[in-house]
Amino acid sequence: MPRIPVLPTLLVLAAAGVMVWLGFWQLRRLDEKEALLARYASAQTTSEEVLWPRDKAAQEQLLYRRARIDCAGAANRSSMAGHNAAGESGMAQTAECVLADGSRALVVLGWSRMPMAGGDWNGGTLHGVIAPGPRLVAEPSVAGLEANAIPDPSEIPNNHLAYAVQWFAFAVTALVIYALALVKRGRK
């Protein structure tokens, strides 16, 4: 009976063990992501409007909630790729909302096919939805722009089960390949 090499065997077993651990880690992440998505879906159905939260942690806790922000002014107009309410691709028109205390918040004013459209907005009260970033997506849109697509948490991928299956499959594949290599080595 041929001798099994110790170091390569230990390395393959350690690698397979890490892959199995990563698979279970992804399963734990699956539960966390499902809870997060459920919280977002619940926030989306809450009709009560909140004031724009000042700190980042509160903004993250209120993602997908309806909110209001009072902008004393506007700065740093820009545009980014986005979709309108009908799902057409174009440019989401953004600005930094200057708050009364001088702090700033990113707001999406509306949508246009053209970059840098709707440049006449200089501030005011905006109503909308807190989106990842975080940013407030105005609803209704302002400055003569078309309506943006409202952020939808159902568009956030939850691939953790697929990742877990991949890690388990990698572990099994590594063990099978190593076993075949040992069999082939034993025949020599």
Rank of each mutant, 00 (worst) to 15 (best):
V108S: 12
Y64N: 02
M19K: 06
I4T: 14
L161K: 14
A143E: 06
L27A: 07
A58R: 13
E32P: 03
M1G: 15
L36Y: 02
A14I: 01
V20E: 04
G82S: 06
A35M: 10
L7E: 09
H83L: 15
H83V: 15
G82E: 05
Y178L: 02
D31S: 15
Q61N: 07
N122E: 13
H160R: 04
S42W: 03
A105K: 01
A181H: 13
D152Y: 01
D70E: 15
L182I: 11
S79I: 11
W111C: 04
F168C: 09
A117L: 08
R104E: 06
M19S: 09
A15D: 00
L37Q: 12
R135L: 05
R135I: 02
A38T: 10
S42F: 00
G17C: 06
A138D: 07
P8D: 03
G124N: 05
G23F: 01
L27Q: 02
G82P: 10
V183D: 12
D70P: 12
A75I: 05
W121L: 03
N76P: 09
A72S: 12
E146C: 08
A58H: 03
A35W: 01
A41F: 02
G128Q: 03
E146M: 14
L145C: 04
F168G: 13
A92T: 15
A95G: 00
R39C: 05
L99G: 07
G124H: 11
M116L: 15
A58V: 01
E155I: 08
W121F: 12
W121A: 08
E49H: 00
D120H: 13
P151R: 02
L37W: 02
Q26K: 09
A86Q: 13
V6S: 11
K56M: 14
R54K: 12
A38F: 03
A105D: 04
A131L: 07
A86K: 12
P151S: 00
L30M: 08
A57K: 14
S79F: 15
A58W: 06
G90R: 11
G87V: 08
A86I: 14
A57H: 05
V172D: 00
G23E: 07
R3T: 15
L182K: 06
R29W: 07
Y163H: 09
E34P: 14
G87T: 13
L145G: 06
V142T: 12
W111Q: 07
M80V: 15
P132H: 04
V20R: 00
T9A: 11
